[in-house]
Design a protein around this nucleic acid. Structure first.
Lengths: 235, 235
DNA sequence: TCAAAAGTGTTATAGGTACACCCATGT
DNA sequence: ACATGGGTGTACCTATAACACTTTTGA
């Protein structure tokens, strides 16, 4: 039971027999919070902002915003991401809704968690009034975040793990041209698991989702690897 | 862009630079809509109510309700289900959020889709003021539903299919004691796919999630099948 | 010449598919 | 006797796991 509500469970009847004025229901705000995941030299990172205003002023948080009256949730999430990174057409998806009564001190704010995968090389930081400071943080060294944002990150990473094999995502975290070794290292980082090199590449190549390029790695102190590109997804 | 909003995209700035009063954000309501799935003699069914009030008066809809100020989303969903069926401790899970701007004619209502699985035999209908009429409808013969409820049902069924193997759910739709043939028929109905009898039972029995009982089917005009019960889930 | 990572082949095994067959019961 | 669904065994095939080996580069 929330302290910021004068209504108790016993005072209400369900549906069309509302014991409180209908207007009392229209007092929620919706927000989106984005877990923006990047990959850099073998490490998974999350883009965080330092909050410039109360509540949780000075604390790190996921970039997010209230949903405006004219937009739907997906649009709000895309707006947050594009304002922050300047990137458009980035992979994004819903994770889960977080609706605990007291999760936001200012009022009843229900948030929808999103996650997106960006290639850190493409990312151009755009500091702005609402994001005084923003930085990539190592995924296993996250500070304590504002609100329930640590929970949102955890849920986002779980969803990513579940979807990586099935939907063949994750390539968004790599440059356009990549080697099989890079994919393997990335998936091993995400799934926290080691794979046999030979078996991994057999499986990946048989999936028909990679295009082999006529190009090799350069300036590496070992046999240069063949570069691949992602097939335009048909499914 | 919604017609019931006086705000346009160009008039706003993101986050902490709000160009509209903060109160304008706290005008949403949250609702839950439950896709209650049952299984009866080889058919999947969904429990629908006939709406007794505008909007969409007289039209079939998913049972749902606005979320009260004192409760969180899961609690709201449990309340809807328990008021409707009298059942407690039923399998339930979030499906997805539906937040299109104009999805609800009365105002900005964002709904969270839930789905739950109930054994029709245990179900005791509880007609009430808000549900004048309620009935099970065959899943492939659903009428046109109020709001975006057809979309919610589709999403719920997709989630069910995705989770059935991984999480070994679906048993909730069967009586406490069941035969392997019954499970196979159920899964074939849900997944719209036929399985080889021998292979299906090998796979299921090797999963260690069923307890064989010392009991058989009775009064069937063929060899009576052994009854099984679901193992208390440990994972 | 060495380290380091790319890249390939071979074998064993587990799991899945297809299908044939027998069993117990009510009518 | 037969229809109906329960229940089992076997042979085959494919996916994958384990591991050994060769190749190409920079230092």
């Amino acid at each position: 039971m929330s302290e910021n509500s004068q209504f108790t469970k016993n005072s209400v009847e369900p549906y069309y027999g509302y014991s409180i004025p209908i207007n009392e229901f229209f007092r929620c705000a919706l927000s989106v919070d984005c877990t923006i995941i990047g990959y850099d030299k073998g490490d998974l990172k999350i883009l965080l902002i330092k909050r410039g205003a109360e509540p949780f002023k000075g604390q790190w948080a996921l970039p997010g915003d209230l949903m405006y009256p004219y937009e739907n949730l997906d649009q709000a999430a895309e707006r947050v991401l594009s304002h922050l990174t300047g990137l458009e057409d980035v992979y994004m998806d819903q994770v889960k809704v977080f609706g605990e009564v007291n999760r936001h001190p200012v009022g009843r704010v229900i948030t929808v968690g999103y996650y997106s995968l960006v290639n850190i090389q493409d990312y151009k930081p755009k500091a702005s009034a609402w994001a005084h400071q923003l930085d990539w943080h190592l995924v296993d060294e996250l500070p304590e975040l504002a609100f329930d944002h640590n929970q949102i990150v955890t849920a986002a990473l779980t969803v990513l793990k579940e979807r990586i094999w099935k939907d063949e995502i994750g390539f968004e975290l790599l440059p356009e041209k990549f080697t099989l070794g890079q994919i393997q290292a990335l998936w091993e980082t995400i799934l926290q698991e080691k794979f046999d090199k030979a078996n991994f590449r057999k499986k990946l190549l048989s999936s028909q989702s990679l295009i082999p390029l006529n190009e090799n790695q350069q300036n590496v102190s070992h046999r240069p690897a063949k570069l691949y590109a992602l097939c335009n997804k048909d499914k």
